[in-house]
Nucleic acid binder design. Structure first.
Length: 896
RNA sequence: GGCCGAGUGGCGGAAUAGGCAGACGCACGGGACUUAAAAUCCCGGGUUCCGUUAAGGAGCGUACGGGUUCAAGUCCCGUCUCGGCUACCA
């Protein structure tokens, strides 16, 4: 078989790696530098691998094989993110248990990945659906449950960084005396309100088609991210994780990570920190506005700003307290608790009607109405605390109950949304900010046509007139704080993470609810004992959704659902399950120590392997997986289980591979490329090489079938560089000799070593392959090929095309794998050429080229250029104004 | 609407520090080998014009219009197009 035939070669070497355990990684090796390179592990879908998977996987595999040859201790694992809806939907259709489907799919994925020759340490393989794995997912949940966030705690972590704010054990939560006085039950409820995992009853996104509630992050344009089904809002008791407690740290600690700026930017936006002030407005009770305001102000001056506003007071949040004098109305979210008490009898029916309509609206409807503002006047008025003006109170669904305080002061002169609303309902517009006089860059205020949202100086603002926006903000915030009417405040766009789902195929919660004598939940909870984990799924035959927000697990047998604790208290199991994100939040930790049954990760292994040095995956996980993981990581860090505060040092997003027609690959477009077909026809090495040769890793690029043939031909040329195709058996060509290489051969080799090494370091695999093609083209033209030169080249090729490289290495006379051979070093002295060709320009245009010694200086170069015939002809009759001579680069004569 | 990224031959792309634009590959054309084909090997190529169809030469070329510079795909200003993200967060 002397012709290059990928199939038997690839099968043979995959077998060799497996039987020799070539890529098995040993734990911490003191003194040996580690490299942890991670792929975003796949969801093993029924349709198998698509060509997008091997893109990132090949890139990491090249980095790993290269790093091993450079002597690093490399951790390169693979596993399965295998909980999730498709397996359960399949169970609904066919009755097959999701575990069976999942295992079949994993087998397919594993077979396909092994077929591509990736150097994973398969002994570290894990699946999120394995009870030995999700035992620890449940354990981590309990750690989060047993943690509260102390925002004022100052401390220095094991990383030596001083921080303010820490997740601490719930037992350390200070209990206020009045709560303590009410006894243990009150204390337990108080603690429950402060845990990082808590139950809340709030409007949530219920997706009837998927039979589950969804997190905000899983909703796009009012529809489910998966399947694009409609979503409605329902008030339901749900588990929430207090990610907002970590909002500041999640935003700030992005800074030093080597991530794409766009991803950092998206995370910061998602967190959406804004700072401003909370201000209280008293609702007007009768016509004696002045007296009411004075009394209330007097009370506030002595008592200060209360934690919760007293009845009849509306608390608002604003980023522009400097526009307080421009308030002409206020808006409450339709769900705001004060709405019904403020509404006058004459407005009540209209208000109630509006509330009903907006509660039925899905988020999609609300978005559609973005262009046209809707709202209803409540009939009530509030008193502006800074100028005593009476302002009407409206309700409108452009104010969200879930952000800030659910109420705003409306300043139509200086806020676009308020402006649109005021125009629609004929509400007065007052200007309180003017452009800075004499500042040419500032835009003129034109309140006839639009709101003026720029910064400027204050007008119509009483004693504050003439102040710059920034000073004004600081000053009035101070003044409001002193008079007990307001305070500085920070808000986040980020909401707490809705953590429960109603599906079967997810991790059960290790939580029990206490029941009273009638069998009703008391609201108090107990946890499963750590040593009793994991909580396994109940056996079920019927996977049809309940059709209601009642979770699937509620259909389990009573044996699973109920028990009586040792103190006689009856308990019912939590029947929600965890979202798919749970398992993927910490899998990178488990890879370091996947068989440990004592703890989720051995601290020594964590210290050695973490953080992940290189993490490659799709950009679609910019704000979901990557934010959730960082959050869990920080909680575990605060609780002392981890020694690094960030999980992923360097992140790279591979670009999507499009179909041959330049469109996104999809079954419906009929442009899907199946990796199995490519491997069958050309082999895994060609697929790997082509995916890397297509273009820069991070770029979106279309598939070209003929391109695969191109790299396949290249491998054929490499093969023929040393193998005699006409021989019956594997025989080296006679031109492969043990002789000394020529200086030119040496120079080309060492240039190639340098280029390929540098290119791998910056993940520029496409140009690395180009350089190896150039080497091959050159060597093909050489009659005698030095064995040592070829051997060094094969090492360069091996991370990209490992199978053919092993085979050629073997034919060159080596018994062992080349996976551990040292990476070639280049000799800078050999890179230097004796002569160089240098272009000569006249007035910036290339007129000639001269060949000079590589070491000649600027003056010698100029002299050589001037001696050139063509140059002389061009210089004839002209006067030289200037000469630019850059040694080794070019000469330019500026003439007139 | 806002923010980010990108526009280079017929196609994918290269040019790391402002210094020969188009490396490498695909597709295409020509040739060699062959009875023939496949495979392989060699050669060619941005574009317009001048030159007898040749050798050779001149001009124009990195989305478009300006600018800086001896020199711009690369830096600056403006415009257009495409892609991604985001969209009532007060």
């Amino acid at each position: 078989m002397p012709r290059y035939d990928a199939k038997p070669i690839e099968a043979r070497w995959q077998q060799y790696w497996e039987t020799h355990q070539t890529f098995r990684t040993e734990g911490p090796v003191p003194g040996k530098e580690k490299l942890y390179v991670l792929d975003m592990f796949p969801y093993p879908s029924g349709s198998g691998l698509h060509v997008g998977h091997p893109e990132g996987y090949t890139a990491t595999d090249i980095v790993c094989r290269y790093a091993r040859m450079k002597g690093k201790n490399v951790l390169h694992p693979m596993g399965w993110d295998a909980f999730g809806l498709p397996a359960e939907e399949h169970a609904v259709k066919t009755g097959t248990h999701p575990r069976i489907t999942t295992e079949q799919n994993i087998d397919t994925f594993r077979r396909q990945l092994k077929m591509l020759g990736f150097s994973y340490d398969w002994s570290r393989e894990l699946s999120t659906t394995d009870p030995a794995y999700y035992r620890w997912t449940q354990w981590i949940f309990l750690q989060i449950f047993e943690t509260w966030y102390d925002a004022t705690h100052e401390w220095t972590g094991p990383d030596g960084v001083h921080r303010r704010g820490k997740g601490r054990p719930i037992a350390e939560l200070p209990i206020p005396p009045d709560v303590a006085a009410q006894g243990t039950e009150a204390i337990r409820r108080y603690q429950d309100r402060h845990r990082l995992a808590y139950v809340s009853e709030a409007p949530v996104n219920w997706c009837p088609a998927l039979g589950t509630v969804l997190a905000n992050e899983e909703i796009i344009d009012g529809r489910s991210e998966r399947g694009s089904h409609p979503v409605v809002r329902l008030p339901l008791k749900q588990w929430m994780l207090r990610i907002t407690a970590y909002a500041d740290r999640l935003a700030e600690e992005l800074e030093d990570l080597k991530w794409p700026e766009s991803i950092k930017y998206m995370q910061r936006n998602w967190i959406g920190r804004s700072s401003g002030a909370e201000v209280d407005f008293s609702v007007q009770v009768d016509s004696s506005v002045e007296k009411q305001l004075k009394d209330w102000q007097g009370k506030r001056a002595s008592l200060g700003f209360p934690a919760e506003p007293e009845p009849g007071v509306i608390r608002i949040y604003t980023t522009r307290p400097d526009t307080l004098f421009g308030v002409t109305y206020m808006v409450l979210a339709p769900e705001h608790p004060l709405v019904s008490s403020i509404t006058t009898d004459s407005q009540r029916s209209q208000v109630e009607d509006y509330i009903r309509r907006s509660s039925l609206k899905s988020d999609l409807d609300r978005t559609d109405l973005a262009k046209e503002k809707s709202g209803v006047f409540t009939g009530g008025y509030a008193i502006n605390p800074v100028n005593g003006q009476s302002v009407p109170i409206w309700i409108a669904d452009y104010v969200l109950i879930s952000y800030g305080t659910g109420a705003i002061m409306a300043v139509p002169g200086h806020d676009e949304r308020d402006y649109a609303f005021a125009k629609a309902f004929d509400i007065p517009i007052v200007q309180v900010v003017a452009p800075v006089p004499g500042d040419k860059s500032s835009i003129a205020a034109d309140l006839e046509n639009s709101a003026y949202t720029e910064l400027g100086i204050a007008v119509n603002s009483g004693a504050y007139d003439g102040m710059k926006t920034d000073e004004f903000k600081a000053k009035i915030t101070r003044d409001l704080t002193e008079s007990g009417l307001g305070r500085e405040a920070v808000n986040y766009r980020l909401r707490d993470w809705l953590f429960s789902r109603q599906r079967y195929w997810g991790e059960p919660f290790p939580i029990w609810h206490e029941l009273d004598d009638q069998g009703n939940p008391t609201g108090l909870m107990r946890t499963d004992a750590i040593d009793s984990l994991p909580v396994l799924h109940p056996h079920m035959e019927d996977f049809k959704p309940t059709g209601t927000p009642e979770p699937m697990l509620a259909k389990a047998t009573p044996e699973w659902l109920f028990r009586t604790d040792s103190d006689g208290v009856k308990l019912k199991r939590e029947t929600n399950s965890m979202p798919q994100w749970a398992g993927s939040c910490w899998y990178y930790l488990r890879f370091c120590d996947n068989l440990n049954s004592e703890c989720f990760i051995d601290p020594e292994k964590e210290k050695y392997w973490l953080p992940v040095d290189l993490y490659i995956g799709g950009a679609e996980h910019a704000v979901l997986h990557l934010l959730y993981s960082r959050f869990w990581h920080k909680v575990l860090f605060d609780r002392g289980y981890l020694s690094h505060s960030e999980p992923f040092q360097k992140l790279v997003n591979q670009g999507m591979i499009l179909g041959e027609n330049g469109e996104k690959m999809s079954k419906s477009r009929g442009n899907v490329i199946n990796p199995d077909d490519i491997v069958r026809e050309y082999g895994a090495d060609s697929l790997r090489l082509y995916e890397m040769f297509m273009g820069p890793l991070e770029q979106v690029k279309p598939w070209q079938s003929t391109g695969v043939e191109g790299v396949y031909r290249f491998l054929g040329r490499v093969w023929r560089l040393m193998i005699d195709e006409r021989a019956e058996t594997m025989t080296l060509l006679e031109s492969v000799v043990d002789a000394e290489p020529t200086t030119e051969q040496l120079r080309v080799l060492h240039k190639t070593i340098k280029a390929v090494t540098d290119d791998i370091d910056r993940l520029a695999f496409n140009t690395a392959i180009s350089r190896m093609m150039e080497f091959t083209n050159f060597m093909s033209g050489q009659e005698l090929r030095s064995r040592s030169v070829l051997e060094q080249f094969i090492r360069l090729l091996s991370p990209f095309a490992p199978h053919i490289s092993e085979e050629l290495w073997h034919v060159l006379g080596h018994e062992e794998t080349l996976a551990w051979e040292p990476w070639p070093q280049y000799d800078p002295a050999l890179l230097i050429e004796d002569t160089v060709e240098v272009p000569v320009q006249i007035n910036g245009k290339v007129r000639s080229r001269i060949v000079v010694s590589a070491t000649c200086d600027a003056a010698e170069l100029q002299a050589a250029a001037q001696a050139d015939d063509v140059v002389q002809k061009n210089l004839e009759g002209k006067s030289i104004v200037k000469v630019v001579s850059v040694p080794g680069r070019m000469v330019n004569f500026v003439v007139r």
